[in-house]
Amino acid sequence: MEDILRLERVSKVYKPNIRALEDISFRVAKGEFIFITGPSGSGKSTLLNLIFRAEKPTSGEIFFEGRPLSSFSRKEIPYLRRKIGFVFQDFKLLENRTVFENVAISLEIQDIPEGEIKYRVLKILKRLGLEGKESQLVRQLSGGEKQRVALARAVINRPRLLLADEPTGNLDARRTEEVMEIFEDLNAEGTTIILATHDQSLFVDSHRRVLVLDEGRLLNP
């Protein structure tokens, strides 16, 4: 199957000399659902940030749909990010805005007509169990609800690749199961998913590929 993502000998070193990632190479096929796991500080978040082009690798190259990320200009990066959804570990939601506004933001930036925005936002909120919460301020939501708002914002754009950084970190067992079902559904619809987690129970019984990171190195390339 065709690759959507390819990493070739990617390393990331933070100043003064902190090696966050070292010589990482792997491929992700279109429609695949993979897990990246490892203890805290192993480099999972850094790896996702590099794929999302929120940071640049110190060396090596990342290819998205065959094109090296280093070749994207500053002006092209927003268009790249519209193809990649990201569920951040800290949600990155606007606390003083409503649930609707937080989700709609991904569509508003593309000048999509208001009517269509409303339809799509309400549809995704319903799917994620947030129906009726659209007018509520994000700061009034529970951790689990915030997680689902972040997920709604990430997937409303129908991204080709979805990155999720510890998406179940703040959820109880029941909510975790619900969120994982949503990921499975999205994947079934064709979205490629890379999910970073330290929670082994999420993948232990699954048939998904698991990449293990430890101290910035990939243990099972």
């Binding site: 500053r74 927003p78 268009y79 990155k92 939601l93 606007l94 991904s106 930036i109 593309q110």
Partner: peptide, 16 residues
């Protein structure tokens, strides 16, 4: 700051 950061992360162009 946070809002500008979020906008740039969800794919808003610098001009927007």
């Amino acid at each position: 700051q946070k809002e500008l950061e979020v906008l740039s992360l969800v794919g808003a162009t610098p001009g927007f």
